[in-house]
């Protein structure tokens, strides 16, 4: 078979992988939805989770698509499509592709035409990410058992423990916006974006509490995120000149 980064064969492989991922997602969605109803959760509430998550996912998903566009310049469309739909993220895939290319003594500046180079890149991308998929089934029992032990021993501490997990993660991603502030005004853009998002969320919270706009709960995170992204698009050219 003649090699081409955008061959029909590679598209068929990609489509098969994507269908597998979709099947797994639908399987878990249907099971969880049915269980939610058995637990007495209303269909309206469960549907609101589906709806609000769908809206919220659109903007980050488009940024992932941008990753496919970036990688497609060297790897064609099917391989980046697979990698960005299964486990991958651009922050991993691009360095992995570059590392494989540099080990072969080539530069990733144009579309790969050599099948051996392509297969090396595909293997490095795959093997590099494999622990993320192998470890959850191995560690699940230990992690869940540990959490249960903490909760059973002291319920209040168990709740604080759980909140600490969330806040530890959130703190890291809030703190990182300060990384570039010492480089000058353009370095403040992520901080400004974060503050605008927080302010919009604060306003949504007030509207929900004071005016009883419960429906806004479903959209609040999406509104604050999109509002902050629009702000980023408007403010960046002004700041960077």
């Amino acid at each position: 078979m003649e090699f081409n980064v955008n061959s029909t064969f590679l598209y068929v492989v990609a489509a098969a992988v994507i269908l597998f991922v979709l099947a797994q997602s639908v399987f878990f969605l249907v099971r969880a939805y049915r269980r939610g109803k058995q637990l007495g959760m209303s269909a309206k509430k469960l549907r609101s989770v589906v709806f609000s998550t769908s809206i919220f996912t659109i903007a980050p998903a488009i940024s992932i698509l941008l990753g496919v566009v970036t990688l497609s310049k060297f790897l064609g469309i099917p391989l980046p499509w697979i990698r960005m739909s299964v486990i991958g993220a651009l922050t991993y895939e691009l360095p992995a592709a570059k590392s494989a290319a540099s080990a072969l003594g080539i530069e990733l500046s144009q579309t790969i035409t050599d099948p051996a180079t392509y297969s090396t890149v595909a293997w490095v991308m795959t093997l590099g990410i494999l622990p993320s998929i192998i470890l959850p089934p191995i560690l699940m029992k230990k992690i869940k058992g540990g959490m249960l032990k903490v909760k059973n021993k002291d319920k209040k501490w168990g709740d604080i423990f759980m909140s600490s997990l969330f806040l530890g993660m959130i703190s890291a991603f809030l703190g990182v916006v300060f990384a570039d502030v010492r480089s000058g005004l353009p370095g403040f853009i992520p901080l400004f974006v974060l503050l605008v998002s927080a302010a919009i969320m604060g306003i949504c919270g007030l509207l929900i509490k004071k005016l009883g706009w419960k429906w806004l709960e479903t959209y609040a995170l999406s509104i604050s995120m999109v509002g902050a992204l629009v702000f980023a698009v408007l403010i960046s050219p002004v700041i960077t000149g």
């Binding site: 806040l167 990182v176 927080a198 919270g205 604050s224 902050a228 960046s236």
Partner: peptide
């Protein structure tokens, strides 16, 4: 034009999410 939006997905996301969790547990945060 759209690059600043794609570069700031995480601050835009965690700003909104952060305010909810921090306001609930500000001492812990």
């Amino acid at each position: 034009t759209l690059q600043p939006a794609f570069e700031n997905i995480l601050p835009a996301l965690f700003g909104g999410l952060g305010v909810v969790y921090i306001s609930k547990n500000w001492k812990l945060a």
